[in-house]
Design a protein around this nucleic acid. Structure first.
Lengths: 145, 145
DNA sequence: GTATAATAATTAGAGTTCTAACAGTCAACA
DNA sequence: TGTTGACTGTTAGAACTCTAATTATTATAC
């Protein structure tokens, strides 16, 4: 077993992990001022954009790459705080449709601005060409995982 | 407020988040068979490689981009399970040096293989040129965040 | 129509992560 | 030397995440 630093042996995953973490931290920082965190902000935003199509918890689990129990836990918290409500669907008693309440709706623009800030800090030092390249390489990697 | 999918508005952070998550999931999957998770594996590996230089918890917090309380919690768990031990340092009673115990040492090669697998699945569909480009762009982004 | 399999959400418990506050120890300074 | 500020790790509580198990409901097969 050599004593080389493990942080130099897997540079791709290390960099991606670090970038993702920093991006999350930055988003959290921006959204904390609103009394929520970045996950909650993303989820509220997504629910709002899809509530008209009758979104249920299971859909969120898929989109956000989480297990059902995690979604239940998150939504319970948001519901308890008055940002969303869940209603048993009319045609299937096992399912709950999710809706953003006014208290949540009024924050959505702020969420989007916060996330836009993070996106900008990812891309702002890149040329247009670099941006295109990075995006297509990331998409390729994502496709393969 | 438009009804556009928010997942198309921030493609960079969305892709990076998803890749990081999938990479973590893959690493977890590989390491779960050993009775631990990827975070624990990375931490044990790092401790092992730096224990001779007298590493303390605060160092781990910096390197792993975590707060002190998180490190305390993780190390308590690993210590409880017999993978590591923490000893108050000789020259400063506030600090604890951390050491990997034999039970942890014997897993290190497996950790490295697991992380190597993940790294490979990130890069394996890329050309050499693409790999170089991706790495330098990721480094650039990471530097800026 | 009935029995079984599948589905959706939930709970309990363990682990990670944070914030805020705390206790003990060391360093710096007067 | 004594006081104060800084440092290191810890605790408590809340939130997110998972696994495994559960309940009620719906879909499917016969």
């Amino acid at each position: 077993m050599t004593k080389n630093s493990s942080f130099l042996e897997n540079p791709y995953s290390d960099l991606i992990r670090s970038i993702a973490w920093k991006a999350k931290a930055k988003a959290d920082q921006n959204i904390n001022a609103l009394g929520l965190n970045s996950q909650q902000g993303r989820m509220i935003g997504y629910i709002y954009e899809h509530q008209d199509s009758g979104i249920i918890q299971k859909d969120l689990a898929v989109v956000f790459e989480r297990k059902g129990a995690s979604i239940t836990s998150m939504l319970q918290g948001l519901e308890k705080k008055g940002y969303i409500e869940r209603r048993i669907t009319i045609n299937n008693e096992r399912q709950k449709n999710i809706y953003v309440l006014p208290k949540g709706v009024e924050l959505i623009q702020d969420f989007n601005e916060a996330f836009g800030e993070v996106e900008k800090s990812i891309t702002e030092n890149l040329t247009e060409s670099e941006k295109d390249t990075l995006l297509s390489l990331l998409a390729k990697v994502n496709q393969n995982l």
